[in-house]
């Protein structure tokens, strides 16, 4: 069931979104060669808890950390470890927080040191595809319009759009209906209505969009061909006009 948020719920969603936004702004300063992903995760958890919120990823279906930190070919759900960041890598940080019973969810891909042109372009296209997608996220449009806009923007530039993972509704639960694929047919799917809060998250790869999930941890999702991938996510609120981005 897709839930429409009331004005008082929207205020709480804005507060939760602000915590996630501030966490991502804070962690950007720590992304340097030599730092381990576990250290970054600890900083994220500390920051979220200091803000009075709870990291929503921790123990979510058994996920062992407060954030997903995915390096290069890891698309999403990278588990923080003792692995050090190296110059030339791209790292995506996905953060979620619960404040006053409501969730905020966002992700960014950062550059570590000096990265090559291909990776820089990948990050840029991923970010821009999100904005192309939310241009369609208006009252009266359909979910297929969002997916189609993202797919069209990325595939016309030669990038791959991951099919197996998708965006989602968000609110009292992190994953609510509807599922929002980053591909689709314009004019198809569930109608978008005012008051919906959605997490839209294009996951774009430099090569083939096929992915595989690590069979040992059950989480780490990497590209099958080992090529880099980027992720950009924000929680948005559907209004009568332009959507409001709650985590930016």
């Amino acid at each position: 069931m897709i839930t429409t948020k009331t004005p008082s719920e929207i205020i709480k969603m804005r507060d939760a979104g602000a915590v996630v936004r501030d966490t991502l702004l804070m962690i950007e300063e720590y992304i340097k060669p030599g730092v381990t992903t576990k250290e970054l995760d600890m900083k994220i958890e500390e920051f979220i808890r200091k803000a009075g919120a709870v990291p929503s990823f921790k123990n979510y279906n058994g996920f062992p950390a407060s954030s997903c930190i995915s390096i290069d070919e890891v698309v999403v759900h990278g588990i923080p470890s003792d692995r050090e960041l190296k110059s030339g890598e791209i790292v995506s940080v996905d953060v979620g927080a619960i404040l006053k019973g409501f969730h905020g969810d966002a992700a960014r891909t950062f550059e570590v040191g000096e990265v090559d042109e291909d990776k820089r372009k990948l990050i840029e296209v991923t970010k821009q595809s999100f904005f192309e997608g939310i241009r369609q996220a208006r009252d009266g449009r359909r979910l297929g319009d969002i997916g189609h806009a993202i797919q069209e923007y990325c595939e016309s530039r030669g990038y791959g759009v991951v099919r197996e993972m998708a965006g989602h509704g968000i609110g009292r639960h992190m994953h609510e209906d509807p599922i929002i694929p980053n591909y689709g047919v314009a004019g198809m799917g569930v109608p978008i209505k005012k008051g919906y809060t959605l997490a839209i998250e294009p996951m774009i790869t430099l090569g083939n969009p096929a992915i595989r999930i690590n069979r040992y941890d059950g989480w780490t999702c990497s590209t099958a061909d080992g090529k880099p991938s980027a992720h950009y996510e924000n929680t948005i609120l559907i209004t009568g006009d332009e959507p409001e981005i709650l985590t930016l």
């Binding site: 069931m1 990823f57 969810d105 197996e164 993972m165 965006g167 599922i179």
Partner: peptide, 12 residues
């Protein structure tokens, strides 16, 4: 955190 695009779920 993204959701698995698995549509065989309750309510569908």
């Amino acid at each position: 955190m993204c959701e698995k695009n698995d549509k065989i779920k309750v309510g569908n």
